[in-house]
Nucleic acid binder design. Structure first.
Lengths: 199, 199
DNA sequence: TCAAAATATGAATGACCGTTCATAAATAAA
DNA sequence: TTTATTTATGAACGGTCATTCATATTTTGA
């Protein structure tokens, strides 16, 4: 409510809410946030225009809802897959691979997340700052254990995010050659291991 | 003309053209491409609305002009600074440092370049694909000379672009701690050298 | 069973904006 | 000097879109 979102209580309301969210995801992906108009979302969802305002104060509220949704989903996917994995290298490998898999399955996620830079720069900063802090925690633990060399983990977090994000982009936009998921993961890990692993 | 741009011939025309371009840069940076309307650009440039259409077919033509302008400027800056530098490591260091310096001096460049993803995805692909191809050439030469290890230079180009871009972003958006230019360059080079240099 | 709350509709309002165009001033060419 | 070209103006047109609201239906809870 204060955040511009009204969560429905009834079964029908929940179904309509979900239709609107899913419609927004596909429309934002196809036309971009700015070129998407409210009727695009409602028409595609099969509801009347006014219904939109039952659940969302405006387009930006819905956008922020989506951004938080993807943040949560991506973290969950990586956390689940790496939960029982031991060691820095294997952890990184599974983490990066999961990130790539998520990007391939949800290519709209990239668009929606990066678009925050143009909707509200503070949302972009917050998204990657939060991600970096979590990454950093894991890195510090690995440094503590002596698994990897002692390197500024703040900077290292951004370096690793940069690698994953640009390779992920190359993968889903098919830029350059050799865009096989496993091959990209292997190549990235060869590099990461060779500069970080403490022998 | 065919590209939606009419280059003026007279001194006055050239001055007006420049005013419009500079106004567009600051307005796009402040409000984003989509939220910028033509009168924002003309008013800020101090000319009448119709004057815009003397030089640009529409907003997108002007945007593409800016994107090509920055592409050219950034390449030129890096090419000039690395022209007489010998060896992979020093070359990388100067290249990355020049990129950071450019980003600090022209923080609007990031916004304008990345926004292409939402204006016309093919522009974004082309921008980074071209950049990657140039990077790759240099990397292949270094591999040939035996300066660095034999690694897929297509992938390595995207990895290095990812590192520069995310650290550059951290730098200009002041995310995390320790955002001193030289410190970031040093840290990035410690990593890059340690995984690539052929001893 | 019945009043209150939640959900749904879509026409109407009012604001905004891209683009055109008739007109005119300045500059260049002859 | 005279004519053609370039440059400049800003009101006006036509279209789009966010948001509201009167009305109606469905669901919930007592």
């Amino acid at each position: 409510m204060e955040n511009g979102i009204k969560i429905p209580t009834s079964r029908n309301g929940k179904a309509t809410f979900k239709l609107l969210v899913e419609s927004a995801i596909t429309t934002f992906y196809k036309k971009g946030y700015s070129n998407t108009v409210i009727v695009d979302i409602t028409k595609n969802a099969g509801v009347a225009t006014g219904t939109f305002y039952l659940y969302f104060a405006n387009k930006k509220s819905l956008y922020i809802y989506l951004l938080e949704y993807y943040q949560h989903e991506i973290r969950k996917a990586i956390a689940e897959k790496t939960a029982n994995v031991e060691g820095f290298s294997k952890n990184q490998r599974i983490g990066i691979k999961t990130f790539f898999q998520y990007a391939i399955k949800h290519p709209e996620a990239y668009n929606i997340i990066w678009e925050s830079l143009y909707i509200d720069k503070s949302l972009f900063k917050k998204y990657y700052h939060d991600f970096a802090l979590r990454y950093q925690k894991g890195l510090d633990a690995s440094i503590e254990k002596g698994e990897i060399k002692k390197i500024d983990s703040d900077i290292l977090a951004y370096i690793l995010m940069g690698i994953s994000n640009f390779l992920g982009l190359k993968l889903i936009l098919k830029m350059g050659n050799r865009n096989k998921l496993d091959y990209l993961v292997d190549q990235a890990m060869v590099l990461i291991d060779s500069c970080l692993i403490q022998e």
